[in-house]
């Protein structure tokens, strides 16, 4: 049926208010520092942070590396840990959801390890792997694997039991039901895990770098704190937030693409 198209306008206040809100946030922040309401040893103004950013693009002082190197280190660690947790967590969760033996053998250990915050592993990883890449990847892997396993497990478990019975009456084998029915129906849940795991990974990356690192955005933040340079701390925080948001958007786009493929 052809219906008439109409345009619905967003009210002006709904466009003005958010913009005004953001602008005043930055203005107040700038003003607080510039007019001395907050001492410069505690907080850096946005303009100072911007200047520091420009300087840090090429100057490795005072923390030992330029901004791009820090960011690249962090992204590398996060990406490796993230991919590893997907590659191991998702199949494990799927198998736990369908095969009783797998569930019985892994679930107790998983439940025991799950409540430990990933950054509690930092000392052990330092003992085991030193302060290099491996230890941080391990912590990020621990952080990311939990949502992957849970979502895949729940996804398989939520497969419509009537469909499973239907498949049984058509003579499908256990393995066929798992691969042809349970995995596809679990996929939306699995994709849901991508975002959650990423957020976990990114949070714990910063934690891992705060304590045991010599480059990386988390290290930049720590060094800024030690050197009493709020501009570097804020720069680090913004870089972490920004790159996290960018990666989140990318994952979201990938997820949408994959899900669209399934629905077709």
């Amino acid at each position: 049926m052809a219906y008439q198209e109409v345009k619905v306008k967003t009210p002006l206040s709904m466009i003005v208010l958010p913009v005004a809100s953001i602008c005043s946030f930055f203005l107040i922040w700038e003003g607080l520092v510039d007019f001395g309401f907050v001492p410069e040893t505690l907080l850096a103004a946005p303009s100072q942070v911007f200047n520091t950013m420009v300087v840090k693009l090429s100057d490795p002082n005072p923390d030992g590396a330029v901004l791009a190197v820090h960011a690249w280190t962090s992204i590398q660690e996060a990406f490796l840990g993230y991919i590893l947790s997907l590659v191991i967590g998702i199949p494990l969760g799927l198998a736990m959801g369908w095969f009783k033996v797998v569930e019985g053998l892994t679930r107790p250990v998983f439940e025991m390890i799950r409540p430990i915050p990933p950054i509690a592993w930092i000392p052990l990883t330092v003992f085991w792997f030193g302060i290099g890449l491996t230890g941080k990847v391990f912590i990020i892997w621990i952080a990311g694997i939990v949502p992957c396993v849970i979502n895949s497990y729940v996804g398989v478990r939520m497969t419509n039991p009537v469909l499973i019975q239907m498949a049984r009456t058509y003579g499908a084998t256990n393995w066929q039901i798992f691969t042809q029915l349970c995995i596809p129906s679990a996929l939306p849940m699995v994709f849901g895990a991508l975002q959650i795991a990423l957020a976990y990974c990114w949070t714990n990356l910063v934690g891992a770098e705060l304590l045991a690192a010599d480059t990386g955005l988390g290290y930049l933040i720590t060094m800024g704190g030690r050197l009493m340079r709020p501009d570097i701390v804020v720069l680090g925080m913004i870089s972490v937030g920004l790159s996290g948001a960018v990666i989140g958007v990318i994952i979201d786009a990938v997820e949408k693409k994959l899900l669209a493929g399934i629905r077709r």
Binding site: Y3, Q4, E5, V6, V8
Partner: peptide, 10 residues
């Protein structure tokens, strides 16, 4: 009714 923000459905 206006559906999906831009379709007029009597």
């Amino acid at each position: 009714f206006i559906q999906k923000g831009h379709m007029e459905v009597p």
